[in-house]
Amino acid sequence: MPDLRYRFADPGELTGERVADMLPGPDPDSFTIVIEPGHATVELLDQLGGAPARDACPWARLPDTPETHLHPDRVLHAGWQLTQPEALPEGMICMSLERSQRYDLVIREGHASPQLVAEMTWLLTRTMRNGVWVRSDAEGRGDN
Rank of each mutant, 00 (worst) to 15 (best):
M1W: 08
R135G: 07
L123Q: 08
A40G: 07
R108M: 06
D10F: 14
G110A: 06
I33M: 09
P2G: 12
P63L: 05
E43A: 15
L45N: 03
G49Y: 03
L116G: 03
S136D: 03
G16K: 05
E86W: 10
D21L: 09
E139Q: 14
D46C: 00
A87V: 13
D3V: 09
P114L: 12
S136K: 05
V106L: 13
M92H: 11
D55Y: 12
E98I: 08
G38C: 06
A40I: 13
D104R: 01
E86Q: 12
V19A: 07
G25P: 01
D64H: 08
L48R: 10
Y6C: 09
R18P: 00
Q101T: 11
S100C: 09
S96F: 06
D143P: 00
D104L: 10
A20M: 04
M1G: 14
G131L: 04
P63H: 09
E13S: 11
Q101A: 15
P52D: 11
P114E: 07
I93E: 02
V106I: 15
A60L: 10
G140D: 09
N144V: 00
Y103L: 13
V34S: 10
G12W: 07
W59K: 03
G110Y: 05
C94S: 15
L82C: 08
C94G: 12
L76P: 07
W59Y: 11
F8A: 10
P66Q: 04
R126P: 01
D104I: 04
D55I: 06
Q47S: 09
T32K: 05
I35N: 01
T121C: 10
R126C: 10
R135F: 06
A112Y: 00
G142C: 03
M1D: 14
I93H: 04
S96Q: 12
L88T: 01
L82M: 05
Q81F: 07
P37M: 11
H71I: 00
P26Y: 12
G79E: 11
Q84F: 09
E86V: 07
E17V: 02
Q84M: 10
F8T: 10
L97G: 08
E90H: 05
S100L: 15
P11K: 08
E139D: 02
R135Q: 05
M22Y: 04
E17K: 14
R141L: 02
A40R: 00
H71R: 02
E17A: 15
A78L: 01
S136N: 08
G79H: 03
P89M: 01
G50P: 05
M120L: 15
G131Y: 03
D10C: 13
E36V: 13
S113Y: 06
G50E: 11
W133F: 14
P28W: 01
R126W: 13
W80S: 02
G142F: 01
E13P: 02
L105A: 08
R141F: 02
M22T: 03
A118K: 10
A20T: 06
R126L: 15
H39D: 13
D29I: 04
L76Q: 14
R7M: 09
I35F: 08
R126K: 12
A53Y: 11
P2K: 01
M128G: 03
P66G: 01
Q81E: 14
I93T: 11
G140S: 04
H77Q: 12
V75E: 00
H39M: 10
P85G: 07
P85I: 10
G38Q: 08
C57D: 06
L44R: 08
T68S: 14
L97P: 00
E90A: 07
L23P: 03
D137C: 06
S96G: 14
E119H: 11
D21R: 12
